Simulated assay, not measured.
Amino acid sequence: MYLSTQREQKAELLTIQQACECTSLGKSKLREIAEEAGAVRKIGRSYRIKKDALLNYIEENYKAE
């Protein structure tokens, strides 16, 4: 368990579950935002989300008013 925790902190491509934990968003909303951001990477049947692209998109487009 410890190794997987270390790996997900440094990972550039995240699974949906890892991205949900990182952003505190639900799966549906996360997929929607990741698609908008162009952060989705499909490798075979794997669905991965580029962490930097997702976080930058959220920071730019979902600012507190």
Results as ranks from 00 to 15, higher is better:
Met1Arg: 10
Cys22Ala: 11
Glu32Gln: 09
Asp52Ile: 08
Gln17His: 13
Gln6Trp: 13
Met1Leu: 13
Glu12Thr: 12
Gly38Asn: 10
Gln9Lys: 08
Ile49Tyr: 04
Glu21Thr: 13
Ile58Cys: 12
Gln18Val: 06
Gln17Asp: 15
Glu59Val: 05
Thr5His: 11
Ile16Leu: 14
Glu35Tyr: 03
Glu12Cys: 05
Ile58Asn: 00
Glu59Gly: 04
Glu65Ser: 10
Ile33Ser: 03
Ile58Val: 08
Thr15Trp: 00
Glu35His: 10
Gly26Gln: 07
Tyr57Asp: 07
Ile43Phe: 09
Met1Asn: 10
Ala11Pro: 07
Gln17Trp: 02
Arg31Ser: 00
Tyr62Val: 02
Asn56Arg: 13
Ile58Gly: 07
Gln9Tyr: 06
Ala34Gln: 01
Thr23Trp: 02
Asn61Ala: 09
Tyr2Gln: 15
Glu59Cys: 05
Lys10Phe: 04
Leu13Phe: 06
Glu21Asp: 14
Lys42Thr: 13
Ala64Thr: 15
Ala19Ser: 00
Val40Pro: 08
Thr5Lys: 12
Lys27Thr: 08
Thr5Tyr: 06
Leu55Gln: 10
Asn56Pro: 02
Ile16Asn: 04
Asn56Val: 12
Asn61Trp: 01
Ser24Asp: 11
Ile49Leu: 02
Thr5Glu: 14
Arg31Ile: 13
Ala11Asp: 03
Cys20Ile: 01
Gly44Val: 03
Arg48Pro: 00
Tyr57Cys: 08
Ser24Glu: 13
Gly38Leu: 04
Lys27Ser: 11
Arg45Val: 11
Gly38Thr: 09
Lys50Tyr: 14
Asn61Asp: 04
Lys63Glu: 10
Lys10Ala: 02
Leu54Met: 06
Gly44Gln: 11
Ser28Pro: 01
Thr5Gln: 11
Lys10Ser: 06
Gln9Leu: 06
Ser4Lys: 02
Arg31Cys: 11
Glu60Cys: 09
Val40Met: 10
Ile16Thr: 11
Leu13Gln: 00
Leu54Lys: 01
Glu32Ala: 02
Ala34Val: 08
Glu60Gly: 01
Tyr47His: 05
Glu59Pro: 03
Arg48His: 07
Arg7Val: 02
Cys22Leu: 15
Ala19Ile: 05
Lys29Tyr: 04
Glu65Thr: 11
Gly26Glu: 00
